[in-house]
Design a protein around this nucleic acid. Structure first.
Lengths: 193, 193
DNA sequence: CTGCTAATGTATCATAATGATATATTAGCA
DNA sequence: TGCTAATATATCATTATGATACATTAGCAG
């Protein structure tokens, strides 16, 4: 009987609050704006949309065939859905969950395989620099838009978070490389005095 | 037939490579050292340990009753397990997965509920400051240890990553608070000129 | 105008991960 | 003596992930 949906429910409601959405457009929106901090799969999105309708938080304007002839189901948030979104917003957010595989490798491999770890760190730095550039691109776009447009502040703060995060991770990786190479030198000195 | 175990397998192997472990000690080790960047549940650990034995990557020295009389199963990494660990170490690590619920709330709520978001950000800052202090505590301990001990470099780099991360997140949240309050002021000015 | 690929769209499934809970023993402490 | 916390193994329902299947259409190259 207890049909709940974890956190997926709320990102769907939040996106529907901006405009009606299809399952596909929700997936694309998350990939575009939240990819770096949140991810959802079709396997979560479609079933959750159905549950939201069951619970009265969303409505379908099922246009079996759109102007193009392609079958689409558009979901719109209801008033109850709006209320549910507000209720969730006022709750204290959960502690964030991270899974940094590179950290496991660094931790387990620095002493045995310093060269490999060094390569991983190089790739990690490149990846973080790319993300950083993406975030700065967003921020430039937002800055160019009208100052008084309040509806973009949310997106701006998301990009800003990315900027801080990716800068920090890049800096960490550079420092890590240095410490690993320092250690290697130290070991060489002890061997060949 | 295809019995795989995702990433859980490798953190278990990595920890077993340091010393033989029980399921419980693995859980505690992860909570102690990797909590901030990786988490595993008993629901993953115990079944995975069995699979590792099946696959020949670990061995049990099943002491049905230890010195204390409590039943424990100690798992030791095998040579095959060591090889598997090395194989994984040399693979390019996956892109990290994050789930920052606060970011969703900030994104969906800044304009409609600025006061609530401000409170969430305060709590977020406090939480990140606490984690930062924890990381700095670790780093102090490591610095006090012998310089030539290479086996702690991994742990040190983990803590350092935390230091960078939590500093960045704290700074972001402070900046976010400022921008939200700036926006509120702007709105008030337009209302009462 | 034909054929190819990419994008849009809905949907499911096996696998993996989470969180809670059950069970039992022992250590420490008031 | 009785309480709570820690140690230890284990399972289960719920959630989440990643891959795949299927169908249509838009755009483009030959």
């Amino acid at each position: 009987m207890k049909k709940d949906t974890g956190k997926t429910k709320y990102i769907l409601l939040g996106l529907m609050a901006k405009r009606p959405q299809t399952g596909y457009s929700i997936k694309k929106s998350i990939e575009y704006e939240f990819r770096h901090f949140w991810q959802e799969s079709f396997g979560q999105i479609y079933p959750t949309l159905k549950i939201l309708v069951d619970q009265g938080f969303a409505e379908t304007s099922e246009t079996e065939t759109t102007q193009n002839g392609r079958r689409t189901i558009t979901y719109t948030i209801t008033e109850r859905g709006q209320a549910e979104l507000q209720r969730w917003l006022s709750e204290v957010p959960d502690v964030e969950k991270l899974r940094y595989e590179i950290l496991l490798k660094v931790s387990f491999g620095t002493t045995t395989e310093p060269e490999i770890i060094d390569q991983h760190l190089d790739a990690f730095i490149a990846r973080n620099e790319a993300s950083l550039a993406e975030m700065e691109g967003f921020l430039t776009v937002f800055k160019d838009l009208e100052v008084h447009r309040t509806d973009i502040l949310g997106s701006e703060l998301t990009a800003l978070c990315g900027k801080y995060l990716y800068t920090a991770m890049k800096d960490w990786a550079m420092e890590a490389k240095k410490r690993i190479s320092d250690q290697k030198e130290l070991q060489n000195e002890t061997k060949n005095p």
